[in-house]
Nucleic acid binder design. Structure first.
Lengths: 315, 315
DNA sequence: TTCATTACTGAACATATGTACACAATGACG
DNA sequence: CGTCATTGTGTACATATGTTCAGTAATGAA
């Protein structure tokens, strides 16, 4: 009753009217004597039959493909791949910080709780943050302070500065990140100031984290830290590939059980995983395996990294 | 605060998520940390900036361009241009009938009033009509019968056959289309059977008409008709270029006032113009000027014609 | 400094769109 | 000649979308 050509012709006309002339389906129906529902179905058919083709131009100089593949491969909400001008860790971290900051700022609307870990990657994001005025936003530490108290990579300092940049309220943890033994840990955890803050962090809307590794140059090792060489060796022997906010995980991103966990004043990995938007900023060859582990374990859902690392993560 | 490349990248991602992955704007918002409204605006921006391009493939072998230009030039709801295999009037009319029938059938839903004129073009549509079952549709004549009563181009016969094909109810006008003088006309018009039917025709949802000309071969002239050669000559002298259902119009499609109008038992041109969907089926070189006149006067809003005529109408 | 202008925002609303459903028509197959 | 699956239909509804609006920040001119 309707030849193939006639049908195609109709599909063409309707598609044209809809997409080019932006008529509503109702208007198209009135015009061609069809019910609105039929127009809807014909439009679907036109898309399916490729009478309508929608092309999306990937911006030049972006790594759109890499990003998309990463998103698909690791179920990320978003991957941002930056083409870095150098392979030096310092340069990479700096450039990642810029886009990480934009990515973080983009999703702040005014009433969020933002949790953060510590480290150079987080620092570079904080440094690149635009100054905003979000008085109802709260910036919370994921874990107690680490590193030299005066250093700018110190957790409390980072949280304070981020809050300042955002015009937001900081919520600090007045305790170290690692304590000597379980007794001290348990004592600290009875302090409502500490527990309330950790509770708030666990319920954060957005998290900004780095990914830690036990490699020679890492901040954790060089920060005159409370973690001894022996302890680190033992953690590695237990399969620890990396950490996020001192929550240690293996090559598949699974939490590694170890007594040292009982000395960490911080937010449990499972609770971090439950946060809607966990933005990890990490790049450079040293971190590859740890990043892959975090991705495999679905510990994060937004990754900001460099192009070399991205390629490696996909091979 | 957001570089141009970052913005483009965002547009790309959002466009991709929307058009390729068919996420809703809400889902995209949740994923990228944006409000739904913002996603809506970014998508618009992506279309405007040609990050998203929508291409519609015109079916091969169709005259999509011609049709579109006709629609634009004459404010048509639809133009259908058929590439005819011959220039012979008979062949053209036949092929137009096929697509005209599809076009008519397409817009019948079940409760319409369909009005029709007469002539070979209308006949060929009626012949090509699929058989349907639309008991609540009514088929009404625009004007009294014309031509030999037994001939299949006769108005009443056409209406009857169309009604039969559609499984619909015919509503015939038991009177001639042209009468001898105004007295007879006025007498007929007091007959409620006639006036009610004409009233119904004027309120039709869809109309199917041919376009008449006073050329040597035309049906009107050769039908041993009630219109004398002298009358025709006079009409032409008055600027009549063509007719639709015996409503005469000039080269601009304006009604031509002439005493002969008072002898026509039919529906006034203005009322025909008011019908939502007036489908004209007409082609061939002889009818060019008349078709153009009807188009100029916006007397019809759907035109089914051949490619040669279409080109001529656009030059 | 002040003030006007502009650009952005999300909430609330009005529209537009997709889809589940019931129902009718068709055609294949026993 | 049923009867079963298939196809196609519009209605009614749930959802998705675009847009107006009022409020607020950013910008720039006086």
């Amino acid at each position: 009753m309707m030849t193939d050509l006639e049908r195609k012709r109709l599909l063409y006309k309707i598609a044209r009217a809809y997409y080019d002339d932006s008529l509503t389906q109702q208007q198209i129906g009135d015009r061609f004597g069809l019910s609105r529902v039929k127009v809807s179905r014909l439009l679907r058919e036109a898309r399916e039959d490729k009478v309508v083709q929608i092309m999306i131009a990937s911006p030049l100089g972006s790594n759109a493909d890499l990003e998309r593949h990463l998103e698909d491969a690791y179920e990320l909400k978003e991957a941002i791949v930056v083409t870095c001008s150098s392979l030096k860790t310092g340069v990479i971290v700096n450039e990642l910080g810029r886009v990480g900051a934009a990515c973080l700022a983009r999703c702040l609307q005014g009433h969020e709780v933002v949790a953060l870990s510590w480290g150079t990657a987080v620092l570079s994001v904080v440094n690149a943050l635009p100054s905003l005025d979000l008085p109802d936003v709260r910036v919370v530490q994921f874990l107690g302070g680490l590193g030299e108290v005066e250093a700018e990579t110190h957790g409390a300092e980072l949280a304070r500065r981020m809050a300042q940049a955002l015009g937001a309220k900081p919520r600090l943890i007045q305790a170290p990140g690692i304590v000597k033994d379980k007794v001290i840990h348990d004592a600290l955890v009875t302090d409502p100031q500490v527990t309330d803050t950790l509770e708030l962090a666990a319920r954060a809307d957005v998290a900004l984290v780095g990914i830690g590794v036990f490699e020679p140059g890492s901040t954790l090792l060089s920060s005159g830290s409370t973690l001894t060489a022996a302890e680190i060796k033992e953690l590695k022997a237990n399969g620890v590939t990396g950490d996020i906010a001192l929550q240690f995980f293996d090559a598949d991103g699974r939490k590694v059980d170890h007594p040292i966990n009982e000395r960490i004043v911080g937010t449990d990995l499972e609770r971090i995983k439950g946060i809607k938007r966990v933005i990890a900023v990490a790049g450079g060859a040293e971190k590859r395996s740890a990043i892959r582990a975090a991705l495999r374990g679905r510990l994060i859902n937004v990754l900001v990294t460099d192009d070399h690392t991205a390629k490696w993560l996909l091979e």
